[in-house]
C-alpha cells in the first residue's frame, strides 16, 4: 500500500504502482517513480507528483507573475520574474499596434524598478518567456507592499479552492495579488491590516508543510497580535 502524502528528497522511491508521473518525479526503469526534489509527494487516483519546498520558479504558459522591470531596449522591456530566465514584454503590448520605435519612448510607460503584473504568453525550451499585460487586472502595480515567498509555496498560500488567501483577505480587508513566481503584492488601506496580512503570508511561507495551516493562520489573524513581530521582521529584511 502506498503512502498518499509523505516527505521526500531526490532519489526517494514514491511508488511502483501504475501511476502517471507528473511534476518533479521521474520514471526509473519500467515502473519505479522517483522524486527529483525535496518536497511532499502526493499520489492521486492515477498520477503522482511532488510539491517542491525549494527551487526557482519555472515559467508556465498562462501563469500570472509579478515582474520587476530591469532594463529596456527600443522594442521591449526585460522583466526579472524571479526565474532563471528573463521575461520579455514587447512594447507593442503596451503602446498598441501603432507603436513606433522612433516616436515612442518606452521609459514613459514603465521605468526600471517598476513592478508589473503580467501573464506568461509563450515559453518553451528555445526562447525566454514572453509575457503580456494586455488583459484585465494586469499592468503596472502602483500601490501595495511586496512580499517574496518560495515559488513552491504559492499553491499553499492560495489553499484548496482559494480558502487560505480568502481567509487572509477577509480578515485583514486587503487585496492580495499572488504571482506564481513567489512574488506577492498586498494592498490595504489600513496599516494594521497590511502588517497582519504580510505576517500571515510569511507564516504560510515558513510553515508550508505543516498540517491545519489555514486554522493556525486564522487563529493568528483573530488573536490580534500581528503587528509587533512584523516590525522586527521588517528591520531584518531592510538589512539584506
Amino acid at each position: 500500500m502506498d503512502v498518499r502524502r509523505r516527505y521526500v528528497i531526490p532519489g526517494d522511491t514514491i511508488t511502483s504502482g501504475p501511476y502517471r508521473p507528473e511534476q518533479n518525479v521521474t520514471l526509473v526503469g519500467e515502473k519505479k517513480i522517483v522524486s527529483t526534489a525535496v518536497g511532499v509527494s502526493e499520489i492521486y487516483d492515477n498520477s503522482v507528483k511532488v510539491i517542491p519546498l525549494a527551487g526557482k520558479y519555472i515559467p508556465k504558459i498562462n501563469d500570472l507573475v509579478v515582474g520587476k522591470v530591469v532594463a529596456h531596449t527600443s522594442l521591449s522591456w526585460e522583466l526579472d520574474i524571479n526565474s532563471c530566465y528573463v521575461g520579455f514584454l514587447p512594447a507593442t503590448d503596451v503602446f498598441g499596434r501603432d507603436f513606433s520605435a522612433h516616436a515612442d519612448e518606452l521609459a514613459t510607460k514603465l521605468r526600471t524598478g517598476d513592478l508589473v503584473a503580467a501573464r506568461v504568453a509563450n515559453f518553451d525550451r528555445t526562447r525566454d518567456p514572453l509575457v503580456t499585460i494586455s488583459d484585465r487586472d494586469l499592468g503596472k502595480i502602483d500601490s501595495g507592499d511586496l512580499v517574496e515567498i518560495a515559488p513552491g509555496r504559492v499553491p499553499r498560500l492560495i489553499g484548496k479552492r482559494g480558502t487560505m488567501i480568502q481567509t487572509i483577505e477577509t480578515a485583514t480587508n486587503s487585496i492580495i495579488t499572488i504571482g506564481q513566481n513567489g512574488r506577492v503584492v498586498v494592498a490595504c488601506d489600513d496599516a494594521e491590516g497590511l502588517l497582519k496580512a504580510k505576517k500571515a503570508i510569511r507564516m504560510v511561507n515558513s510553515m508550508a508543510h505543516s498540517t491545519n495551516l489555514t486554522e493556525r493562520v486564522k487563529e493568528m489573524l483573530e488573536s490580534g497580535n500581528g503587528a509587533p513581530q512584523e516590525t522586527a521582521e521588517r528591520r531584518e529584511d531592510d538589512g539584506e
Binding site: M1, V3, R5, R6, Y7, V8, V38, A54, H209
Partner: peptide, 24 residues
C-alpha cells in the same frame, strides 16, 4: 546522513517514511 540533513532542514527532522503520511 544526507537524508537526515535535508529532513532536519525541511521537515523538522521527520524523514517522512510514513511518519506524517496518510495511508491510501
Amino acid at each position: 546522513l544526507q537524508k537526515k540533513a535535508l529532513s532536519e532542514k525541511y521537515f523538522d527532522g521527520e524523514n517522512g517514511k510514513g511518519g506524517r503520511g496518510q495511508k491510501r
